[in-house]
Measured scan of single mutants.
Amino acid sequence: MDETGKELVLALYDYQEKSPREVTMKKGDILTLLNSTNKDWWKVEVKITVNGKTYERQGAVPAAYVKKL
């Protein structure tokens, strides 16, 4: 869990989004888990830093590609 009490997951593999509802992640990324009720796809929040600014993006990733921490 992070400092706000939200559950975290670890990306076990790289994943490139294939639709606007998904998010890209790299192996080793730590993501915030938002919903894991679907056994195949979990909704997560990814933090992306671009030019020193951090953005948050929500989307789905394959459940088999992440592990709860």
Score class of each variant (00 low, 15 high):
46 V>L: 11
12 L>G: 01
18 K>D: 05
4 T>Y: 12
4 T>A: 13
3 E>K: 13
48 I>Y: 13
43 K>C: 15
57 R>T: 07
20 P>F: 08
10 L>C: 12
40 D>Q: 11
50 V>E: 11
25 M>G: 00
48 I>H: 08
56 E>N: 14
12 L>V: 06
17 E>R: 14
15 Y>Q: 01
69 L>V: 09
33 L>P: 00
3 E>L: 14
23 V>S: 02
50 V>A: 09
30 I>T: 05
24 T>F: 03
64 A>Y: 09
59 G>V: 06
53 K>S: 09
29 D>S: 06
11 A>V: 09
36 S>A: 11
47 K>D: 02
14 D>R: 02
8 L>A: 05
21 R>L: 14
23 V>H: 02
59 G>A: 04
20 P>M: 08
15 Y>C: 05
63 A>P: 07
59 G>C: 06
38 N>D: 15
40 D>H: 13
68 K>E: 06
49 T>E: 11
6 K>Y: 13
37 T>N: 12
36 S>F: 06
19 S>P: 03
25 M>K: 01
33 L>C: 04
41 W>M: 05
33 L>Q: 01
64 A>R: 14
12 L>I: 10
19 S>A: 07
69 L>Y: 07
12 L>M: 08
54 T>D: 09
16 Q>L: 12
61 V>C: 06
13 Y>T: 08
8 L>R: 11
52 G>N: 07
44 V>K: 00
39 K>N: 11
61 V>Y: 02
28 G>E: 02
44 V>R: 00
59 G>H: 01
13 Y>H: 11
62 P>L: 07
26 K>F: 09
1 M>E: 13
53 K>G: 08
64 A>V: 08
37 T>G: 09
65 Y>H: 07
25 M>F: 11
39 K>C: 12
31 L>F: 07
68 K>R: 12
27 K>W: 04
60 A>S: 14
44 V>C: 01
67 K>V: 15
32 T>F: 08
17 E>H: 08
49 T>W: 09
45 E>I: 12
68 K>S: 06
42 W>M: 02
60 A>R: 14
69 L>W: 06
63 A>C: 08
19 S>G: 12
15 Y>D: 02
13 Y>K: 13
67 K>Y: 07
7 E>M: 11
15 Y>S: 00
11 A>L: 04
5 G>P: 14
18 K>W: 04
52 G>M: 04
53 K>D: 10
14 D>A: 05
36 S>W: 07
4 T>D: 12
20 P>I: 08
21 R>A: 14
23 V>I: 14
33 L>A: 01
58 Q>T: 11
48 I>F: 11
48 I>K: 08
2 D>I: 14
16 Q>C: 13
57 R>A: 07
14 D>C: 05
20 P>R: 08
25 M>A: 00
17 E>D: 03
26 K>R: 12
57 R>S: 05
26 K>Q: 09
47 K>P: 05
20 P>N: 10
15 Y>K: 00
50 V>L: 11
12 L>D: 00
61 V>Q: 00
24 T>M: 03
13 Y>R: 15
40 D>S: 10
24 T>N: 04
31 L>T: 01
54 T>E: 10
46 V>N: 03
28 G>W: 04
57 R>E: 03
52 G>T: 03
16 Q>D: 13
52 G>I: 03
18 K>Q: 13
23 V>T: 04
1 M>D: 13
36 S>L: 04
53 K>A: 10
67 K>D: 07
33 L>Y: 01
40 D>K: 11
30 I>L: 07
66 V>E: 02
25 M>W: 02
21 R>W: 15
43 K>T: 15
10 L>S: 03
59 G>I: 08
68 K>T: 06
58 Q>I: 13
16 Q>A: 12
14 D>K: 02
56 E>Q: 14
43 K>Y: 15
28 G>H: 03
53 K>L: 13
32 T>H: 09
8 L>H: 09
26 K>W: 06
20 P>S: 11
12 L>Y: 03
31 L>P: 00
17 E>L: 07
63 A>D: 05
8 L>T: 07
39 K>R: 10
17 E>S: 15
58 Q>Y: 07
12 L>E: 03
29 D>E: 08
67 K>P: 05
7 E>Q: 14
59 G>D: 00
57 R>H: 07
43 K>R: 13
48 I>V: 13
69 L>P: 00
64 A>Q: 11
22 E>I: 04
17 E>V: 05
68 K>C: 10
5 G>S: 12
51 N>R: 07
57 R>V: 09
67 K>N: 04
6 K>P: 14
55 Y>R: 08
49 T>F: 11
46 V>R: 08
29 D>L: 04
7 E>F: 11
64 A>W: 09
29 D>P: 02
32 T>P: 12
46 V>P: 00
55 Y>N: 06
39 K>A: 13
51 N>D: 13
15 Y>P: 02
45 E>A: 15
12 L>A: 03
13 Y>L: 10
58 Q>W: 07
5 G>K: 14
16 Q>P: 05
42 W>N: 00
9 V>Q: 00
6 K>I: 11
49 T>V: 13
24 T>I: 04
3 E>M: 14
15 Y>T: 00
35 N>V: 06
40 D>L: 12
20 P>A: 11
53 K>Q: 13
47 K>G: 05
56 E>M: 15
63 A>I: 03
6 K>G: 11
26 K>E: 04
10 L>F: 08
63 A>S: 12
63 A>R: 08
3 E>F: 12
49 T>L: 10
14 D>G: 05
33 L>V: 06
10 L>Q: 09
68 K>F: 08
49 T>C: 15
58 Q>S: 10
19 S>C: 10
53 K>M: 13
48 I>N: 06
60 A>D: 15
24 T>Q: 03
14 D>L: 04
53 K>T: 11
30 I>A: 00
37 T>K: 10
27 K>G: 04
53 K>R: 12
25 M>V: 09
7 E>W: 12
67 K>C: 15
23 V>Q: 01
6 K>S: 10
45 E>N: 08
62 P>N: 04
